[in-house]
Simulated scan of single mutants.
Amino acid sequence: MRLWHEQLIKYLPRQQLLGQHRECCALRGNGWEKPHATVNYIFNYSVTHLFAYHCLVMDEMKKRGYTVTEEWASPSYRGKNCEPIDLTNFDKDTLKKMEFLIKSGHIYEEHDERYMEECLENLRNKGIYIHF
């Protein structure tokens, strides 16, 4: 389980991009706050950060012509087997921040240069070389 560095999303091969979508769906659903060493840092943030990250993934999928279940476009949706998130407690500032995160493409502080290199190395070990 891994969230690729935000800047890599548009370069990911099909398999990794679709896998990232599945990871985001799982994390937004029953996987929220279930420990996993590779992604534990996301639980230090509001679920809105994960939604913003997932939006980047879904936007790239749509650009490539893949179909995305429309329910995932709602920040409250958590999958068929989970209760939706109650957004009534989210103030306008939180929702504006979520929109800003989506537009900025820099969602997690941990996604720094060191993490970028770690992700690139992980991809190289899979035989995937990304140059940008």
Rank of each mutant, 00 (worst) to 15 (best):
M1I: 10
R2H: 13
H5A: 05
E6L: 00
K10Y: 07
Y11R: 00
Y11C: 06
P13Q: 02
Q15A: 14
Q16G: 00
L17V: 04
L17I: 02
G19T: 05
H21E: 14
R22G: 04
R22P: 00
R22L: 13
E23R: 10
C24N: 10
A26P: 00
L27C: 06
L27Y: 05
G29D: 03
G29I: 01
E33P: 00
E33A: 14
K34V: 15
K34I: 14
P35L: 08
H36V: 08
A37C: 07
V39E: 04
N40D: 15
I42W: 03
I42K: 04
F43A: 06
F43P: 09
F43D: 08
Y45W: 08
V47F: 15
T48E: 01
T48H: 02
Y53G: 06
Y53P: 09
C55H: 02
L56V: 11
M58D: 14
M58P: 04
M58Q: 13
D59T: 08
M61A: 10
G65I: 04
G65C: 04
Y66A: 05
T67S: 14
V68H: 00
E71Y: 09
E71H: 12
W72C: 09
W72Y: 11
A73T: 11
Y77L: 03
Y77N: 03
G79A: 09
K80M: 07
C82Y: 07
C82A: 11
E83F: 12
E83S: 15
E83I: 11
P84K: 04
I85T: 05
I85D: 07
D86N: 15
D91A: 01
K92H: 12
T94I: 14
T94Y: 09
L95N: 04
K96L: 12
K97T: 09
L101G: 00
I102K: 15
K103M: 05
I107H: 04
E109S: 10
E109P: 05
E109C: 05
E109R: 13
E110K: 12
D112E: 10
E113H: 08
R114P: 00
Y115A: 09
E117C: 01
C119A: 06
C119S: 12
C119E: 07
L120K: 15
N122S: 12
L123R: 03
R124M: 07
R124N: 14
R124F: 01
I128E: 05
Y129S: 09
Y129R: 08
I130C: 04
H131D: 13
F132C: 11
